[in-house]
Design a protein around this nucleic acid. Structure first.
Lengths: 237, 237
DNA sequence: TACTGTGTCGATACACTGTATCGAACGATA
DNA sequence: TATCGTTCGATACAGTGTATCGACACAGTA
């Protein structure tokens, strides 16, 4: 705490090395790399900055808050969804493609599912995705008014958010219990089997024991088809 | 750092006061009170413990991790959903009641929406809710196999999770921009109007300007009805 | 009554978080 | 060359979840 005595004790007045140039883009990509590798909770301002050989506060020239970073990550992820060009193809086909597109992103970047539905998605890429969804229905004859269109898309997106979140949650649970099946068997399984054999949840028990398990892919597709059927407007006559 | 000199300096050997009895129940309720009042991010082990006149580490006798606490909160919230008794009423009616029930909980405890879909919900109350959902369809004639039943319920839950999360997210956004409309007008609005008038998102722009806004209640109901229509099995003939 | 486990409590500590502050160093301008 | 405005990042602050472990209260024993 005393001031350094002799010159040799004093640190050389850190000539700042030409700082590697930064950009919102590079920051977001570093954050995404981190999130992919170690999960969303590993994304801290310090670690992202370190990845870029910068001090933590440097980032605050490009972002005003950590939430900004998360918003940018989300929008970047939306950008990875391939948007079908506006051909005259059936709207169902287009929406199915979009749905599978967003699912692929969520499986590739599980943190994306964590952020889905956390805040309104208003970034340019999210808007482009929304545009593609709305336009597909807007072109379709079955949908008379724009209100019908917007309600259908709202419903579809709600389903997608929920489906992707639960799928990722289940996948994580399976993965972690697969990693050490011992602790799973000791902890969760006894509780669950006790609960299920308690007689309090007969239908659940029946379902757990007798339902045929779908693969995640077909499960998602089944739900998506349910949904597309549901948002189809009733025939006028 | 030196040892205290005289007796009056030394703190009286803290006769531990009869510790107010704790329980998982009371801890969870304290956490819920906090989350209701100040949001989920205000729920910290320290604050919850303080609410109960206890040291932070005391809680770890009842929980093994903070995630446990969140899981317990979620299950307690599920417990607030009124479960319709198993009358012979139409399954649509039952599912609608359950849907509105879970929505009421999410609106009463917005943190519940934050936690929806984060992890598989396996607590007793969540199982009871699931049981009620499955049972409603199991009783219905239209659903032939348990597979059909489980897929329908999966889809419904996915929709509910997504719908409630987005509704809460929108409500929060509106609330915060309503609180200081100035910062909203200065920040988000310019970007959005620019984006919408850029011509890149024609359908979105049309939708924003011309769609008639539903109240949140009817919007939720509309989606729910879409969904119930979608999961209805096709007539056999 | 004295002593010795036994188990619980919580103070302290550790490593980490997001971000406000502000002196110092730089490049550009006068 | 002197000055200015900008940008950087070291330091600091208030908080986080939780591991550790000494100190205490009580139960059972001698």
């Amino acid at each position: 705490m005393d001031e350094p005595a002799v010159i040799w004790d004093r640190p050389e007045p850190t000539r700042r090395p030409a700082p590697s140039p930064l950009s919102r883009e590079s920051i977001v990509q570093a954050a995404i790399r981190l999130a992919d590798a170690e999960g969303l909770e590993a994304v801290s301002v310090r670690k992202v900055a370190a990845e870029l050989d910068a001090g933590p506060m440097r980032l605050y020239g490009y972002l005003s808050t950590k939430d900004d970073l998360l918003d940018l990550m989300v929008d970047a992820a939306y950008g990875e969804i391939p948007l079908p060009e506006a051909t005259g193809q059936d709207w169902r086909t287009t929406l199915r493609e979009l749905g599978h597109g967003i699912r692929q992103v969520a499986l590739r970047h599980e943190w994306f599912a964590d952020l889905l539905g956390r805040r309104p998605h208003l970034g340019p890429q999210a808007l482009a995705y929304l545009e593609a969804s709305l336009a597909a229905l807007d072109r379709a004859d079955e949908f008379a008014t724009i209100d019908e269109v917007s309600r259908a898309i709202r419903t579809l997106h709600a389903y997608l958010i929920g489906a992707l979140r639960t799928e990722v949650a289940e996948r994580r649970a399976e993965r972690s219990t697969g990693l050490d099946k011992d602790s799973w068997r000791r902890k969760a399984a006894p509780y669950l089997t006790r609960a299920l054999s308690s007689g309090n949840y007969p239908t659940v028990a029946n379902f757990v024991h007798n339902a045929t398990r779908q693969t995640p892919d077909t499960a998602f597709d089944t739900g998506l088809n349910h949904l597309l059927a549901g948002i189809t407007p009733p025939k006028p006559n």
